[in-house]
Simulated scan of single mutants.
Amino acid sequence: MTILDAAANSRTFKRAWGDLIAGFGKRELWLHLGWQDIKQRYRRSVLGPFWITIATGTTAVAMGGLYSVLFKLELSEHLPYVTLGLIVWNLINASILEGADVFIANEGLIKQLPTPLSVHVYRLVWRQMILFAHNIIIFVIIAIIFPKPWQWTDLTFIPALALIALNCVWVALCFGILATRYRDIGPLLASLVQLLFFMTPIIWNESTLRSQGAGDWARIVELNPLLHYLDIVRAPLLGAEQELRHWVVVVSLTIIGWIFAALAMRQYRARVPYWV
């Protein structure tokens, strides 16, 4: 078999799908590595990853309190809204920015350890889910202080969170491959994500825009896909009415995103070890 034949055989959807399946099958490896990332990052720290929880909680209380006064909103409603927005945003933000760096950061393992490429992505998403679990404690405390009536339909946040995790995988795969080939993608994404933070209803809400007479901006915000990802998790946890359109958009983007991820894995998976 020639080198060209070998390269052609590696660019198949079967190989790409096989990498994803084989990588998921190595759960013990990426679960252990993800947990070790947390421990190593906060080595010799007394509070460990709870420092992130404290920082997120402080930011949520400060922004929730300030903007509830500026927008003349009830603190009992706006503080949980902002808190959940920041917690879910941190998960999405890290998946995009750290996802772009996922293969570059694991250069040594990729070159020395013969494992499926997807292992490093699963490790990243697992690590972020651990941090999400730490941060959600903030919302639990706020929910106790400002209790809301709960319904069984509120449990839809569980499949919503699973859907976001599934999206985090394809996002990290696509941006990871792209940023490994073109190193300017990382800084570009950092600037874009920062802009999206202010364009996403995290510290403000759509009703505030409309009440201020900014209805045109509210329609523009609808084009921001992150709005829909936030709402499918935040709405049920706040006991708010859930809108079908958010689920339709997220499911549609999930399908489209995985199609791009499959194409990227098929075409460029074998080249990543050379690019890093």
Rank of each mutant, 00 (worst) to 15 (best):
Met1Lys: 09
Thr2Tyr: 11
Leu4Glu: 15
Ala8Gly: 03
Arg11Tyr: 00
Thr12Pro: 02
Arg15Val: 12
Ala16Arg: 03
Trp17Lys: 11
Leu20Phe: 08
Leu20Met: 14
Ile21Cys: 02
Ile21Leu: 08
Ile21Gly: 01
Gly23Arg: 07
Gly25Tyr: 06
Lys26Gly: 01
Gly34Asn: 10
Trp35Phe: 11
Ile38Thr: 08
Arg43Ser: 12
Val46Met: 09
Leu47Asn: 06
Leu47Lys: 07
Phe50Cys: 02
Ile54Tyr: 09
Ile54Lys: 09
Ala55Trp: 10
Ala55Ser: 11
Thr58Pro: 01
Thr59Ser: 13
Thr59Cys: 03
Ala60His: 02
Ala62Phe: 11
Ala62Asn: 12
Gly64Leu: 05
Phe71Val: 04
Lys72Met: 09
Leu73Gly: 00
Val82Cys: 08
Val82Thr: 04
Gly85Cys: 06
Ile92Ser: 02
Ile92Phe: 07
Ala94Phe: 01
Ala94Gln: 13
Ile96Leu: 14
Leu97His: 06
Glu98Trp: 06
Gly99Met: 04
Gly99Trp: 04
Val102Glu: 00
Phe103Arg: 07
Glu107Tyr: 08
Ile110Glu: 01
Ile110Pro: 01
Gln112Phe: 05
Leu117Glu: 14
Leu117Tyr: 06
Val119Gln: 08
Val121Gly: 00
Val121Tyr: 03
Val121Thr: 05
Leu131Arg: 14
Ile136Asp: 15
Ile137Ser: 12
Ile138Arg: 10
Val140Tyr: 09
Ile141Glu: 02
Ile144Tyr: 12
Pro149Asn: 12
Trp152Thr: 15
Thr153Leu: 13
Phe157Leu: 14
Phe157Ala: 05
Ile158Lys: 14
Pro159Cys: 09
Ala160Asp: 15
Ile164Lys: 00
Ala165Phe: 08
Ala165Ile: 05
Ala165Trp: 07
Cys168Met: 08
Leu173Pro: 00
Phe175Ile: 10
Ile177His: 02
Leu178Asn: 00
Leu178Trp: 11
Ala179Ile: 05
Thr180Lys: 01
Gly186Val: 08
Pro187Val: 01
Leu188Met: 15
Leu189Thr: 01
Leu189Ser: 03
Ser191Tyr: 09
Leu192Arg: 08
Leu195Ser: 15
Leu196Met: 14
Leu196Asp: 03
Leu196Cys: 02
Met199Asn: 06
Met199Val: 09
Met199Phe: 13
Ile202Leu: 13
Ile202Lys: 09
Ile203His: 10
Asn205His: 10
Glu206Asp: 13
Ser207His: 10
Ser207Asn: 12
Thr208Pro: 11
Leu209Asn: 06
Gly215Asn: 07
Asp216Leu: 08
Asp216Ser: 10
Ala218Asn: 10
Glu222Pro: 01
Leu223Gly: 03
Leu223Val: 01
Leu223Glu: 11
Leu223Asn: 02
Pro225Trp: 09
Leu226Asp: 03
His228Phe: 08
Ile232Ala: 12
Ile232His: 13
Gly239Asp: 04
Gly239Val: 01
Gln242Leu: 09
Glu243Gln: 15
Arg245Leu: 07
Arg245Cys: 00
His246Lys: 13
Ile256Asn: 09
Ile256Tyr: 10
Gly257Cys: 05
Ile259Arg: 11
Ile259Tyr: 11
Ala262Trp: 05
Leu263Gly: 13
Ala264Leu: 10
Ala264Ser: 14
Arg269Asp: 04
Arg271Gly: 00
Val272Phe: 06
Tyr274Ser: 11
Tyr274Val: 00
Trp275Gln: 12
